[in-house]
Design a protein around this nucleic acid. Structure first.
Lengths: 333, 333
DNA sequence: ATCAACCGTGGTATCGATACCAAGCCTGAC
DNA sequence: GTCAGGCTTGGTATCGATACCACGGTTGAT
């Protein structure tokens, strides 16, 4: 067992008290120049790495934040995690990550495990919370940030944007550009609450314009992932409704699937039909697809969440932090 | 401040010693049925959540593993993280995540921050390590797992597959199917060591078949991401070498870019030209692209790494754990 | 010249859990 | 009937750092 060097070892070598070593690390300005250099030299010499678990115990500040995500394997949350992680590390904090794989039953267990590490704050990507979860969170006094949506009643702080409004805006955009037979593909999965909200925005926009909404799939098709879902659903959609002149997709991935299927069927986009996506990540960037989409600032959500965690008082003044989105019009509409 | 319930509170309510509470949580079989139920009831009643930081201090087992990844925002590592996280959580461990954003200078700092949490083990996705990093890792006695490659001299344990062999195999596959003018796109970025290895495999396969390798880009094009890089590079490639009959891509994303550009130029895949990718994630799945690719078991790498961390002795017996890959032939070759 | 205020410094208690050791109880064997 | 040995149980020390308080020495004001 390679024994860890302790603060006392450093203190002895530098001929100071342990507390002085602690101060050199946390509040160097309160230590005289001479001793500080002695201590720093001793730290270097011994290769001392402080033990934050011990520090957490005595100061009741762990300098760790916890995150519970549905999945890491989705550029959607991945960008946010990158933003979170980078911002937090710059401030001297670490990120404890747990993924639930979209299984809501795991959430409470995961939260319990997270709380056992006494984090200074928590980030949640999940949308609805069991009463066990709510109870646990109520009992603690640390900041809780919900991301990627704007609940009307946030648990504590929310950072995101309105999925409903995004769906509404895109539908309006299609309507304004002359489309009259607009289908919506994806968003039929009950667990994807955010996708559902976008679909509702779409529905309301069509209704208020006097148009009939057409949606695929209505049943839960969790087995299919983005691109495949898009291709398969578009095919079905065409069978039922051959005169569709616009397809609004729940995600960029789905939109890519639609575009592929369209090109295979010689449907000319955008002349015969418009297609829109959602996300604004790589797949929709100025590439072969040139997809009109809603660009969501995933990384920014991470950064804003980190700021909220680091300064919860300021964030709580707002409660709900809207980072917005951007409708990016490109070649498919 | 919502005060945390401590083990002593539980012990007092259940009328036992604190140590008995500890045993109920860690080794319940050593506690009599009656007391165990009393303690469990008290835990439930008080909503007690144990403090693992305190436990880590006294047992010098943190039940946390650290991971340093280049980026979360890449399905490549994301699947591995999912596998890691799931397997570790099932065993009662947590994952401390740090991303370096492909900046090798951050690695040492990140590692230092990670070690300050006294993890029970570490996972690295980075390929080469500075001497500072090596020194830090030498000083500790915890398992260190390097993933997604098979270094000849692993620091401790390695879990992955041979990128060189994967490149070689795919090139052989193209040669065997009759291609004679095979270009390689991507993998020119010096920081992407794994891509470079695949490209070397390609080069050697061509050489040993008496064919001339053709590669784009040779300069560092970090600014372009996958799809765009594929589209742009393919264009240049065609200008220089219009008779190319196969394009081997460093990743599926790049391959998608190539396919898009090909379809725009009315190049018929696979009749005029074959295209292959690497990765085997969503984008290459049975979708519109039907891409021939090398499928890498990203999730499996995570699971195997977790096992190695949990039982380092068994893993060290192997040192290098090869999870392999699969050449998936589909419609583009 | 005297005293208050302040700065740098160290000693000691403390955070919440677990390791270690010792004690009490019960069972079974002689 | 007595004693050994196994089982459960609790007391106390401990992990490594920080909070709190107290001390000596210096500075500035009166």
């Amino acid at each position: 067992m390679g024994k860890w060097v302790t603060m006392k070892d450093v203190a002895d070598l530098a001929n100071v008290g342990t507390i002085t070593v602690s101060r050199v690390l946390r509040t160097p300005e309160k230590v005289s120049e001479a001793k500080r250099q002695r201590v720093e030299k001793a730290i270097e010499e011994l290769g001392y790495v402080p033990d934050n678990t011990a520090g957490a115990l005595s100061s009741s500040k762990s300098r760790v934040f916890g995150a519970i995500v549905s999945t890491v394997n989705d550029s959607v949350f991945a960008q946010t995690l990158d933003g979170l992680s980078s911002t937090l590390r710059a401030a001297g904090y670490e990120l404890l990550l747990t993924s639930t794989n979209y299984n809501p039953e795991v959430e409470e267990e995961a939260l319990r495990a997270l709380l056992a590490r006494r984090p200074d704050g928590i980030v949640l990507t999940s949308t609805s919370h069991s009463i066990g979860v709510t109870k646990l969170l109520d009992a603690v006094s640390i900041p809780v940030v919900e991301v990627w949506q704007l609940p009307s009643e946030p648990l504590d702080i929310a950072v995101g944007f309105s999925n409903y409004q995004a769906g509404y805006d895109m539908a309006r955009h299609l309507i304004n550009s002359g489309c009259e037979n607009i289908a919506f593909i994806g968003g039929g999965c009950a667990r994807d609450v955010r996708g559902l909200r976008r679909r509702e925005g779409y529905k309301d926009a069509l209704k208020s314009a006097g148009l009939a909404p057409v949606m695929w799939p209505n049943e839960d098709q969790a087995a299919l992932t983005g691109i495949e879902l898009g291709a398969a659903s578009f095919e079905k959609c065409l069978n039922v409704n051959p005169h569709v002149d616009a397809v609004m997709c729940v995600s960029d991935q789905v939109a890519v699937g639609v575009l592929c299927e369209a090109s295979r069927r010689d449907v000319d986009v955008p002349n015969d039909m418009s297609v829109s996506g959602f996300g604004g990540f790589e797949v929709s960037a100025p590439s072969g697809f040139d997809l009109t989409t809603i660009a969501v600032p995933g990384y920014e959500i991470g950064v804003a969440s980190a700021r909220a965690l680091l300064d919860p008082e300021a964030a709580r003044a707002q409660k709900v932090i809207d980072v917005g989105y951007k409708l990016v019009e490109r070649g498919t509409t």
